Amino acid sequence: MKRFLKIGLLLVFVALVAWVFVYLYKQSKAAPTVYETETPFKTNIIKKTVATGSVVPRKEIAIKPQESGIITALFVEPGELVKKGDMIARIQIIPEMVQVNEAESRVNKARMAFENAEADFNRMKDLFEQNVIAISEFQSEELRFKTSREDLQAAENHLQLIQEGVTKKMGAKTNTVIRSTIDGMVLDVPVEEGNSVIKSNAFNDGTTVAMVADMSEMVFEGKVDETEVGKIKEGMHLLMTIGAVENEMFDAYLEYISPKGVEEGGAIQFEIKAAVKLKEQQFIRAGYSANADIVLDRRDSVLAVNEKVLQFSGDSVFVEVETEDQVFEKRLVETGLSDGLNIELLNGLKEEEKVKVPTI
């Protein structure tokens, strides 16, 4: 019995050793590598650079008052459409006391001169009607009378303009009503009723009462890096995408490239502007952020491969073409335009040939 047990244990040990040797042999034997292949294909190759920026109206006007004063009424709100000449706001003029005092003094002097001229004129008129004086003397006195009357009226109008911003003769024309200077949409009204406003002068840009813009004509304003600015020129086609408008592309055409760059984040950036082509009745809000792809060059319907299949040796470019199953040979190829993912094939490959995808 013991003998059979020993023989059994020996057989188990031998089997275990044999299994270990077989397992180690299989583990040491490397599995053959199977390479993936790709075939050339026809596609459009577009080389482009990206400019980031925003979409703004081409014509955006800051409406400012013609006189300083206090806002007494606002007639528009942001988002409303206005025509040229429509009322934006009304102001109450707060005159300077020095100007008022000078204007009142001028009125008093003009009134005294007029009253004196009127008395002289009436006296000369009586003498002329009695044929005591010549007509030339009467006409001279009449001219002085009319001139003094005009001076008085001008002084009174000047005082009224200082105090009220309008005269009776002006009718609807007044500096106290602020009107739109263009057709467009009100983008912003940064003031409220009761706010003081200042007119534009040599020392002050003036208070902006409203921003009005023509929203039918939009412009893309962006920045291009100095490494790319030399490759673009006016008239180039841009493909623009707006972050707030999903799944839609806009056409734009480059119309301005700044001659001077500005340093931003350690790199020199050049400003560009492009006219955006909007569809009929399409509305784009001012200030939307946008990206514009500037088409530097393109090839349509050309034979191409993915750049990952290319291999390099010095200045030479080659691929490995499959001649038999998992058997490859090196072949030099001539390449053209690349978009960073696919590259144009000028010579060296046919459309039906399979190319090895190198492993990293």
Rank of each mutant, 00 (worst) to 15 (best):
76 V>C: 03
143 L>D: 15
298 R>N: 12
130 Q>V: 09
33 T>L: 11
142 E>G: 04
159 L>N: 02
122 N>T: 01
312 F>I: 06
204 N>F: 02
293 D>A: 08
203 F>P: 03
320 E>I: 02
358 P>T: 08
283 F>N: 15
82 V>N: 02
262 V>F: 08
259 P>N: 07
236 M>K: 12
349 L>R: 04
105 S>Q: 13
344 E>H: 14
159 L>Y: 03
192 E>C: 02
101 N>L: 09
234 E>M: 10
335 T>N: 04
319 V>Y: 10
179 R>G: 03
70 I>W: 13
58 R>E: 06
276 V>Y: 05
293 D>T: 03
28 S>W: 02
182 I>P: 05
201 N>E: 01
270 F>Q: 10
130 Q>I: 09
86 D>W: 07
327 V>N: 04
106 R>I: 04
291 N>Y: 01
259 P>R: 10
135 I>C: 00
112 M>Y: 15
253 Y>K: 10
45 I>N: 11
163 Q>T: 08
146 K>R: 15
194 G>Y: 05
47 K>Q: 15
316 S>V: 09
224 V>Y: 02
79 G>V: 11
57 P>F: 02
8 G>N: 07
51 A>P: 01
239 L>K: 13
281 Q>R: 11
26 K>F: 14
234 E>W: 11
11 L>Y: 06
99 Q>Y: 11
137 E>C: 07
90 R>M: 15
293 D>Q: 11
96 E>V: 08
97 M>P: 12
353 E>F: 12
328 F>S: 10
136 S>A: 15
172 A>L: 14
199 K>Q: 15
267 A>H: 14
38 E>C: 06
206 G>R: 05
120 D>N: 14
7 I>R: 02
257 I>V: 12
215 M>Y: 02
185 M>T: 08
101 N>W: 05
31 A>V: 05
46 I>Y: 03
180 S>M: 09
349 L>S: 04
17 V>D: 02
192 E>A: 12
133 I>G: 01
98 V>K: 07
273 K>H: 09
162 I>D: 04
151 D>A: 07
291 N>Q: 13
